[in-house]
Design a protein around this nucleic acid. Structure first.
Lengths: 186, 186
DNA sequence: GGAGTGATGACAGGAGCTGACATCGGGTGC
DNA sequence: GCACCCGATGTCAGCTCCTGTCATCACTCC
């Protein structure tokens, strides 16, 4: 069996995306994903913690990018602006809009996947808040700024994915941030 | 009605809280909860959609309170302030701090429960955004204002639960909102 | 008193997920 | 070249969550 084919993880992720798209998330079993990828069901769980996690491969990279961008922001910039800029920078690294749209379609069709997405965003927010605190921002302000930044990113990302005529993601983020400033000034 | 044993739902919720607290969420099975409540496992799932939902009994009431408060806010108040006031009003209806603290301890020990909490908050935010739109606020602004309001509520709630010396919840919410305004003004 | 209603019990079963152990293939050291 | 080790995978057994289906039982209404 020339079988220890390389990149089992990649094949599993691809197979899962295809099947989730073809017949829906709940309607596809882990056994089917594994079969299409040419591995065992057990192997699926060695690469992904659960059936949902396969859709969140990029979350680690995004979080790293955001944290690095926060570190790289000059001191003296306010916390909200710092997080906003970090989101812009990290957002620039997500150019594959087609994949994002397909993934979003799967996500919006399933509450349990939205839960996982929210957890990832909350984790991103918590990490950003910690990074802010390391730069001297007090805890409450750091939490609020980070959460606000995540909310801005989320809203902008949704707009970018859902609207074919939307500007690049970084621009969407900047515009949402500007809008937020105007709103809180009331 | 005094059918057989009344209030199966209440007994299930109580038993679940006790067991989750005693031995942890993942370590307690639905069968054990049902046994302590004196019903069948099947009956548990007739009252709660899943094992986590039993900890989110109050979410419906909270959402209703927030929506009612938004409706009751005079026109002319800005969207962020509207949501902030609604959170204050709804927060006044959550006086049982001991229960909240016990529940929070269980929640923070388990990511899957945090996922559900985040979903509830997101649902609250979406509902608030819809209510705002019904009052003439444009969609992006409504989303941002609602999300921001939820973030403020979440941060304030965490402070209130975690800090014995914290002021009443409504005050925590007002203070967090004030802090946010100062932050976004940068 | 009989029919309807709503909650529950009893049973079967699928799917997600985990632990334990065997196996295979590819390096490593000699 | 060979023995050996190690990481990735296969195999198997099993638990738990959750659902569908049907019977039952108390209670209500006519």
């Amino acid at each position: 069996m020339a079988r220890w084919e390389p990149d089992a993880r990649g094949r599993l992720a691809l197979a899962a995306m295809q099947l989730y798209g073809e017949r829906g998330f709940e309607q596809t079993t882990v056994a089917e994903i594994a079969e299409r990828a040419g591995v065992t069901e057990r192997t699926f769980f060695r690469h992904f913690a659960d059936k949902r996690e396969v859709l969140f491969n990029g979350s680690v990279g995004l979080q790293e990018a955001v944290l690095a961008a926060i570190e790289a922001t000059p001191a003296g910039v306010g916390p909200v602006e710092t997080v906003g800029r970090a989101m812009e920078v990290a957002g620039s690294g997500i150019p594959e809009r087609e994949y994002a749209a397909q993934r979003a379609a799967i996500l919006t069709a399933n509450p349990s996947l939205q839960e996982r997405e929210l957890l990832k965003l909350a984790s991103l927010g918590a990490a950003a808040a910690a990074a802010l605190q390391r730069r001297g921002v007090d805890p409450l302000a750091a939490t609020l700024a980070a959460q606000t930044g995540v909310a801005v990113f989320h809203a902008a990302f949704a707009r970018w994915v859902g609207d074919v005529d939307a500007p690049p993601l970084a621009v969407c983020i900047r515009e949402a941030l500007t809008e937020l400033r105007a709103l809180t000034a009331d």
